[in-house]
Design a binder for these strands. Structure first.
Lengths: 213, 213
DNA sequence: AGTTGATTTATTGTATACAAAGTGCTACGA
DNA sequence: TCGTAGCACTTTGTATACAATAAATCAACT
């Protein structure tokens, strides 16, 4: 794994908390490589806005409630559009991919064999996979780019860790609604269901996050 | 001006045509600096998708009709949303900034003192300024980021160079409609007017561009 | 002639030394 | 005690040498 991916992973997994100062030299020492690839990784993470310039150097980006509001609303706009486009452009394989995600999601909810943390990691992964399957089904590379770009940021909130069983079930249901609408070539229904799903996520994060960030 | 800006400018102004191969060493020689800042600029332009990796190295990105379609539709989605948000969040200064752009635009159309090329450069600049004024008025940093990101790409088409006097007048009128709607706190009207404006730009580019790219 | 393998060449990847510049600290003066 | 100027230190910016590797060329064999 290259430097960029390693640092990104550390940020998303919370090893480098928001506000943490990152210097090239420290990272170089930590990852046991020279400053050159570190520089590259930092520049890239900066354009993705996972880190922000501060004085001489950078810090892991911090997001306040206003940021969360704006980011989730943008997600709703873009992923809602993607769902609508998917309802028009989806292939049979796209449908299958989405079905697989939802089936695994369902299995996991019905047979909670792991510990809670492992299960929520799995859920997070499956949720991401479903969303990917939807925007991939839109067959729109530019749209895909913007969605992935706006979606990395909420990852740092690790929102699924606050979900209870009822909320997870509600998520699955909306996934299924979205899938049905896409399968039935109903762009507008797909869009509204997706937006509803994301707005629920937004409100959930806003309700649970510490008031200041 | 740093390396990144110089290369970006060269791409947007067409000095490096789409498909042109760019190598670190050539750029370093051309800009009279070492490869290090060139590397950085290339990486950044790559994440902005102005250049694309190809074999060992990169080329200036090429866009086909499908790309143009997708990019302009995304612009309509994002800038339409920005216009609606601006209608809710705009301050008095935001309104003034938009008014200034449109007044200058109008002056320019009524008093075409320059040569055609200089005038169209000026028009392009004023058009960009108006659009910036609108999304700045939305007071949404994340939205701003995505709009600027999706908007750099159409710049390489230099679409205004194909506009005739009537079309420029129509552009100005829509700008004024957008401004009125934002001033009157009519988010939906602002959105539809902005979308209409961008769709007209899209169709204009698609009509005039060489069929293959 | 076409295909495969080895050799050469072009180009990027990495490390490191040094230059430049911003930050903060300390000491001095008001 | 507060402010400020100068200095030291931390950190990034740049250049350059060398390593790694992908691509292209060419030759040999089928």
């Amino acid at each position: 794994m290259e430097a960029y991916e390693r640092i990104k992973k550390s940020i998303i997994e919370g090893d480098y908390a928001p506000g943490t100062r990152l210097t090239e030299e420290n990272l170089a020492k930590e990852l046991q490589i020279s400053r050159t690839p570190i520089r590259e990784a930092i520049k890239r993470l900066e354009t993705e806005r996972l880190i922000s310039p501060l004085k001489r150097g950078v810090i892991v980006s911090e997001f306040n409630r206003e940021d969360i509001w704006q980011i989730y609303n943008l997600r709703a706009l873009l992923e809602g559009y993607a769902a609508a486009e998917a309802a028009v452009n989806r292939s049979a394989e796209d449908i299958e991919a989405m079905e697989r995600c939802n089936e695994q999601f369902k299995d996991l909810l019905e047979n909670p064999t792991y510990g809670r943390t492992e299960m929520l990691n799995e859920i997070t992964e499956l949720n991401n996979q479903f969303h990917s399957a939807v925007y991939n089904a839109s067959h729109n590379e530019h749209l895909r780019f913007h969605i992935t770009s706006v979606t990395v940021l909420p990852l740092v909130f690790r929102s699924f860790y606050w979900y209870n069983e009822y909320q997870l079930k509600k998520s699955l249901e909306l996934h299924q609604t979205i899938l049905c609408a896409i399968q039935a070539n109903e762009p507008d229904r797909a869009k509204t269901a997706m937006q509803e799903h994301i707005y629920q996520g937004r409100d959930h994060v806003l309700k649970n996050i510490n008031n200041e960030s």
